[in-house]
Amino acid sequence: MKLKLDNLSCGYGQRKVLENISLEINGGEVIGLLGANGCGKTTLIKSILGLLPTQGGEVLLDGKNIKRWTSAQIARVVGYIPQMHTPPFPFEVLDVVLMGRTAHINPFASPSSKDVKIAEQALEMLNITYLRNRIYTEISGGERQLVLIARALAQEPKILIMDEPTSSLDFGNQIKVLSHVKQLAGLNLAILMSCHFPEHAFLYSNRVVLLNEGRILHSGTPGETITAERLKTLYGVEVEIVSVINRLNKELKVCIPSGYFRPEIDLAQISATERNYALANY
């Protein structure tokens, strides 16, 4: 399924936050959405989900405008994974995942054995079946985020929208969550993921969209889109984008504030080994 934003404008009341946003996301793609705090990433996500009325343009799913769709109709197609949250009641993990079946269950009906099976399969897909009977409020932050992904998968969506899914996680849990995101794209899901870290976009995105001052600054592959100049425009800081070689001999790109380098070192003119040494010691 394809998600298309056609000249979309959105905001709050009479205040316009974003305008003329055009974007297409196809199954199997991970689109990274980068921009500073307040640039409109969450506003865009809320508008796509129908939580905010659009001020212009269209949100199209396989060519169909969803403006008049009910929230249940949207939920059958689009799964939403919010930033870290804590529910007010101590539900078991399986019950939290079962909440993803709400759009498929008639009002006042109870989840069927089929719904329970789908929820269990979502847990199994993410390798967290061991959490099945644990209390959601008593598990770690990384585990909670994986449970939220499982809840979204239980919706059986064609599109996943993730609003800074790693914002409150430690380094290890960030990598675990993002690794699962890449795997989900392999199931032909279309994934739109907002994030703050350019390195995440380099590692896990097929394409990147940069939001700045209410418009798309640039979009394209991570390598061509994420540049030091554009990051300065987005975040107001000078950075260096350098390549390092990991233990699997794979080249990775990282962003480091320019002030961390000695001026006499020209990173483009030294070997990968010397570059790694410079990064480690300067």
Rank of each mutant, 00 (worst) to 15 (best):
K2T: 15
K2N: 13
D6P: 02
L8F: 09
S9F: 06
L18N: 08
E19C: 12
E19V: 04
S22P: 00
E24L: 10
E24S: 14
E29W: 07
L34E: 08
G35E: 10
G38Q: 15
G38E: 15
C39Y: 00
T42K: 01
L44D: 03
K46Y: 00
S47N: 01
I48L: 04
L51F: 10
V59D: 05
T70G: 15
T70Y: 02
A72P: 01
A72Q: 13
Q73R: 12
I74V: 14
V77M: 11
P82V: 01
P82E: 14
Q83G: 10
M84F: 02
E92M: 10
S110G: 08
S110Y: 15
V116E: 15
K117H: 13
M125N: 11
L126H: 05
L126S: 08
L131N: 06
R132Q: 13
N133V: 03
N133P: 03
N133M: 05
R134I: 08
I135L: 13
E138K: 15
L146C: 04
I149R: 02
A154K: 09
A154M: 12
E156T: 13
K158M: 13
K158D: 11
K158S: 14
I159N: 02
L160N: 02
S168A: 15
S168K: 08
L169V: 11
N173L: 06
Q174K: 11
Q174W: 05
V181I: 10
A190R: 00
V209R: 01
I216E: 13
S219V: 03
P222R: 05
T225V: 03
T227S: 12
E229S: 08
G236N: 11
V242M: 11
I245Y: 03
L252M: 14
V254N: 00
V254C: 04
G259S: 12
P263M: 05
A272T: 13
T273G: 04
T273R: 14
Y282M: 15
